[in-house]
Amino acid sequence: MKLYDFGPAASAQRVRVFLAEKGLELPTEQLNVREGAQFTAALTEMNPFHCVPFLELDDGTVIAESLSICRYIEEIYPQPPLFGRTSTERAVVDMWLRRFELDGLVPMLHALRNSLPVFAGRVVPGTRNSLPQLPALVTRGREMMEIFLGRVEPYMVKSTFVAGAQFSVADITGFFAVRSATTLNMDIGSRYPAVAAWFAKVSARPSFQL
């Protein structure tokens, strides 16, 4: 296997945290995404979405999506389990994973890409000179995240981790959703203290020292 990576990319960092929690290291090639390294003909043939990370298997199969890479790694390296140990746990982890991704991380992705100058011309991941940044998407992303955090806060008061008592891939996704909110200077600490306490606890894990 070979992992194509770009250090600063949050999507790539999600996979690296997952690998670290598994105690795994994979052969890795760094691609300078900011300079368009992913748009070469050879890499386009491998990964037409031009996003990192992507994983090339020994048989030539390419997996070009962060969570899909994590699911594949979980299948071949099941310990420690990060997607749950039983059918019930796996369903609960998947539920929270989807909630944090769809209701938290995705709105934050659009907000960041439509606000930070580094993403000008690249508001759609894997594109260049595609669409202009829209300030309205920043406002709407922040509003959606506020709604989501308001729903999550009461749950986090009584939960050790996102999906229950055990650390899981849902915590990894949750971390990057909340980190994005802090990048946008959203007030997590005073408005959502249980979320902030969980975030601080997860941030201290060795795997998150990126």
Rank of each mutant, 00 (worst) to 15 (best):
P117N: 09
G174I: 02
S115L: 08
I73L: 15
G150T: 10
A197V: 03
M156H: 02
S115I: 04
L109E: 12
G126E: 09
A91E: 10
E146G: 04
P117T: 14
L112G: 06
R98Q: 12
L149Q: 01
V106Y: 02
D187G: 04
D103K: 02
R191Q: 12
R122W: 06
I76C: 06
M156N: 02
N114T: 09
L82M: 09
N129H: 07
V93A: 10
G174Y: 01
A196V: 02
T127P: 01
M145R: 04
A120K: 15
R98W: 02
R85L: 13
R151E: 13
F148E: 12
M108K: 00
V169S: 10
L137V: 04
R122L: 09
R151K: 05
V118M: 15
R98M: 08
A163E: 09
V178K: 00
V195Q: 03
V157I: 13
Q133K: 13
R99L: 13
L137S: 05
A170E: 01
W96H: 08
N114I: 12
T182I: 07
I147V: 14
F83V: 10
R128H: 05
I73N: 12
R98G: 04
D187R: 01
S190E: 14
L112W: 00
E75Q: 15
P125Q: 13
E75N: 14
A200Q: 10
Q166I: 11
I147Q: 13
A170C: 05
D187S: 12
M95P: 05
G150M: 08
V169W: 01
Y192P: 00
I76K: 10
V93Y: 07
A197I: 01
E143Q: 14
V162S: 11
